[in-house]
Nucleic acid binder design. Structure first.
Length: 548
RNA sequence: GCCCUGGUAGCUCAACUGGAUAGAGCAAGUGGGUUCUAACCACUAGGUUGGGGGUUCGAGUCCCUCCCGGGGUACCA
């Protein structure tokens, strides 16, 4: 592709004495393998009609990879490649990206303990983990970390209900069976949140219990807190692992970042922060954002301070070139402020912090709100998926469940809001994870039955339309993956893999492989196909089982 | 009010960053079973890309202006 791009550039230069970067796009299959619009771009400068220019260019094009050319429509130049070129392109590995050699830290999950993990957290974890895989595939050294809010208001709400529930007897906690802990914690938080809203005396008590999460100076409080916190992390780890996320190198807690963050803010009062009503405030409005308190009037660190502390912890532990934080888009403006403040405070270190905002999730029937308890928990998603698979008499496997859920989230643009439909997310038909996994299995099955070893194929062989179409699609993988990595957009790979699998399934319906006189060639295509599909699925963290 | 976002088929989403006849899945309807896994395939139907202006060879995409959602707007994260 690059060769052809260069060739076109050189021809344009020679004919019209114009410097330009010819763009090669992939047109509909009927038009050819690549298309360029250089003739239309040149028309204004040269003063000829686009089609005439295109004709002139076409007559000068000559390259061993080009099998045919054609001028079409308003002046597109369509190019068809030789089979050798397609094969070569299909066999290419990933080319280097800008990420090569960089060190990148990325938060791949950050649900808070003392609350249940709902699909919003799940989406965030899946998106962030997949982005981390893309960054790694692009050549960076990646450190995955997590960050959790183990102090503050939400802890107070949960503790309020839990302390009432145990009523001074900590043994009551130990009688709760392991599998019920999640719903227990979830209920406790919901009750606390309710009380906070409706009952003024409860509100005051909760504020005080929240305060205690910072100091832990009450023995019973501390014991309960530690037990419930460890339960939460067991749950989080289990669910995140089940979603298919790669393990994190390090877990950070807000309680660790707090003190450090407050210190940073204090050290920069006057030049970066200002004091206002007793609080330490970042005057974001000066930078087109909004003013935000980083340290409260009571001297307690707020989330802004903690994020600054966290940045310094990451710097200390990994000295990354880049730090990526994936959050819901509600926090977009907030992070603009924190990042701006960090630039001003840490003028000497070179880490670039990037916030990638994800869209938010709404439920099909209405909004999702953790206050009203109107949420779908990740655990429930797994349970429903299992039921659905049993109902359709399918093999239930963690691999299929994981594939369905991950793909359902990843097929959308990261930034776009998602209307979450539980029935669609557990679907195994159409544009879904299981469709891709199944399309992989059908190919593997053929390869298993075939004689082992690489096929010896004459690349100059004439291809049928179906064979060529599949090969053409395969030849686009490498550039598609690079684009997905450059944009940190998993959905680009999803779309491609789905089209690839569709292409293969069509091929599969009409073309016998084993025992056919074209067996060697077709086997080599099937082999390339299944390897490509598997590679792509792995970039998404979706397993490619051999059988299902 | 101000700052971000978004509005594409009945529903959920794409559209290679300004290109050719706006594409998929689901839902609806019709076909396909002795053959390598039918979690599949083929076909039909479905659109004034929220409305209106503008920019140019060319607009879902860029600009202006209305209409309607969502989010943010210092001591929750």
């Amino acid at each position: 592709m690059q060769e052809i791009q260069g060739h076109i550039q050189e021809v344009c230069q020679r004919l019209f004495n114009v410097e330009l970067q010819p763009e090669l796009s992939i047109p509909e299959e009927q038009f050819g393998d690549y298309a360029t619009n250089v003739a239309m771009q040149l028309a204004g400068k040269v003063g000829q009609s686009p089609r005439d220019i295109a004709q002139t260019i076409v007559s000068e094009l000559s390259h061993p990879y080009i099998a045919a050319t054609d001028v079409a429509g308003p002046g597109f130049i369509n190019i068809s490649l030789t089979n050798e070129a397609l094969f070569a392109s299909a066999d290419e590995g990933l080319i280097e990206t800008d990420l090569q050699g960089k060190t990148v830290v990325i938060e791949t999950n950050n649900p808070n303990p003392f609350k249940a993990m709902h699909v919003g957290h799940g989406y965030n974890a899946i998106a962030a983990d997949t982005i981390s895989r893309l960054v790694e595939a692009g050549g960076a050294t990646v450190h995955r970390v997590s960050y959790h809010g183990d102090v503050g208001a939400h802890v107070g709400k949960s503790m309020y209900s839990i302390l009432r529930y145990i009523d001074g007897d900590i043994e009551k906690l130990h009688t709760i069976p392991k599998e019920e802990r999640n719903t227990f914690m979830s209920r406790m938080y919901a009750e606390g949140a309710q009380a906070y809203k409706e009952d003024e005396t409860a509100k005051q008590e909760i504020d005080q219990l929240a305060e205690q999460s910072f100091v832990l100076d009450d023995e019973l409080y501390k014991q309960v807190y530690e037990i419930c916190k460890s339960w939460s992390f067991e749950q989080i780890d289990e669910l995140v692992n089940r979603l298919g996320n790669l393990p994190v190198d390090k877990r950070y807690l807000e309680s660790q970042a707090d003190e450090l963050g407050v210190q940073i803010v204090r050290d920069n009062v006057g030049d970066v922060f200002i004091e206002s009503d007793g609080a330490l405030v970042f005057p974001g409005e000066q930078y087109g954002i909004f003013d935000n308190a980083f340290v409260s009037s009571r001297g307690r660190g707020l989330y802004g301070a903690r994020d600054l502390g966290l940045m310094q912890l990451k710097q200390r532990d990994f000295s990354p070139d880049e730090s990526i934080i994936v959050t819901a888009h509600e926090q977009k403006d907030y992070f603009r402020g924190v990042i701006k403040a960090a630039e001003l405070c840490f003028s000497d270190n070179a880490t670039r912090t990037v916030n990638i905002p994800t869209g938010s999730i709404t439920l099909k029937g209405g909004k999702m709100s953790s206050r009203s308890g109107d949420v779908i928990e990740v655990q429930a998603l797994f349970d429903q998926m299992e039921v659905a698979l049993k109902q359709q008499d399918s093999t239930t496997s963690n691999e299929v469940i994981r594939g369905a859920i991950r793909y359902q989230f990843l097929k959308h643009r990261v930034s776009s809001d998602i209307v979450f439909d539980i029935n669609e997310s557990i679907s195994t038909v159409g544009n879904s994870g299981p469709y891709l996994q199944y399309a992989h299995c059908r190919a593997r099955s053929i390869l298993d039955k075939a004689a082992t070893g690489e096929e010896d194929v004459d690349l100059a062989i004439e291809l049928t339309a179906d064979e060529r179409s599949l090969l053409r699609k395969l030849s686009q993988y490498q550039q598609t993956a690079v684009q997905s990595i450059d944009d940190l957009s998993p959905h680009i790979i999803c779309t491609y893999l789905y089209e690839l699998a569709q292409n293969y399934n069509r091929f599969y319906e009409h073309n016998r492989v084993l025992g056919d006189e074209r067996e060697a060639l077709r086997l080599s295509l099937v082999r390339r196909y299944s390897d490509t599909l598997k590679h792509g699925l792995e970039l998404l963290g979706i397993p490619a089982p051999e059988r299902m």
